[in-house]
């Protein structure tokens, strides 16, 4: 009986979003009378940071401060359509829609500002701090808030924009099989280090270290949060979580939250990552996506590390102590049979 260490590696190429036709997201933006901008979406923030990142993209495109942007994801019944937030798609798909809407709203804003400043639209710039300036003539400027207010109370105009993004359908060429299977791909590679206790079958994950290439990072802190949380979740899928431990036999199904097994802080390995940025040509400001993909490569990396440590290849998740002990027994039986046969 021993504690055996092993190292495993796995990589993932992750196509952002769904890619076989469709996968639309849309956005509407309008300015309030106070000069803040409301971005209406049906795209849900479930903790991945969508509101923050989309707010950054909208603010960057509009040319206003991020705290002047309000992301309204209140109601999927009444908001512009979105396929949903999954498949690491939101920053890319929703970001593209919001960027388009913000460009239209920005033009509408500058048209009113041009009336106010008595200058051509093409000669105006936004300074990112809530002012519209006449380029080359810094004395002539007007507050965005004033433009927004005057648009509504003096000019009777809206400052608004519409945006949509949809990956075009890509039919398969019947002759060659060629098609365009994705809009962009993010990449990751994970090295996992484990220790297998051959007496109990327990696996301790010691380290999950990854390299990610996710296109331009809109918000590096949120990217790291996704990667660290995703590494833990990958470990959880690899070793712990299941609703059907003996499928199709229903025995030992977790009946409630308390019986559903997940690792806690005591099982936490050392998690580390480096992030590379190769901007995509299709994403807003070069983004790809880094959500769901973060739980992918840790799983095969851990399974490979277990094989490296103790020679047991388990191809059925989660890798429970029972499966490891059965695998070790089978391996030892084969080895001693071979030794007896060779004698």
């Amino acid at each position: 009986m021993a504690k055996l260490r092993g190292t495993g590696i796995a990589a993932v190429n992750y196509p952002t979003g769904m890619n076989l036709g469709g996968d639309p997201s849309q956005a509407l933006i309008h300015a309030t009378t106070s000069g803040s901008f409301v971005v209406a979406l049906s795209s849900t923030d479930l903790g991945q940071g969508l509101r923050t990142v989309i707010g950054q993209i909208a603010a960057e495109t509009l040319g206003v401060a991020a705290d002047e942007v309000v992301i309204d994801t209140a109601d999927t019944d009444t908001g512009p359509h979105c396929m949903g937030t999954f498949a690491s798609r939101a920053t890319h798909r929703v970001g593209n829609a919001v960027k388009a809407a913000a460009e239209e709203a920005r033009t509408a804003l500058l048209e009113v500002a041009a009336l106010e400043l008595n200058a051509p639209v093409g000669g105006l710039v936004l300074d990112g701090f809530g002012n519209v300036l006449v380029a080359g003539d810094p004395g002539r400027c007007v507050r965005v808030a004033e433009v927004a207010s005057k648009a509504q109370f003096e000019y009777g105009r809206t400052i608004s924009g519409r945006g949509a993004y949809m990956k075009p359908k890509s039919p398969v060429d019947p002759e060659t099989g060629a098609m365009d299977p994705d809009s962009t791909e993010a990449h990751a590679c994970t090295i996992a280090e484990v220790e297998v206790d051959t007496e109990t079958g327990q696996v301790a994950v010691l380290g999950i270290r990854s390299a990610y290439e996710v296109g331009r990072q809109v918000n590096p802190a949120l990217v790291r949060g996704q990667i660290v949380g995703g590494a833990w979740m990958g470990m959880s899928h690899a070793l712990y979580e299941t609703t059907e431990p003996y499928y199709p036999n229903p025995d030992h199904k977790p009946k409630d939250f308390s019986e559903y097994v997940m690792p806690g802080p005591a099982e936490l390995p050392e998690i580390d990552c480096v992030v590379l940025e190769v901007p995509s040509s299709t994403g807003p400001y070069g983004v790809k996506g880094v959500g769901e993909m973060t739980a992918n490569s840790p799983i095969p990396a851990i399974v490979n590390a277990i094989y490296h440590a103790c020679g047991v290849r388990v191809d059925d998740l989660p890798v429970t102590p029972e499966k490891i002990l059965r695998g070790l027994e089978a391996k030892w039986a084969t080895e001693s049979a071979a030794a007896a046969g060779g004698r």
């Binding site: 903790g47 949060g225 660290v228 949380g229 995703g230 590494a231 833990w232 979740m233 997940m262 806690g264 802080p265 005591a266 936490l268 998690i271």
Partner: peptide, 20 residues
């Protein structure tokens, strides 16, 4: 001691490391 204290509190998102 921190890990001990967190024993009864589940987090699904962060992987606990940032909480610690």
């Amino acid at each position: 001691e921190i890990i001990d204290a967190l024993g009864g509190n589940v987090c699904r998102c962060t992987g606990y490391a940032p909480i610690i």
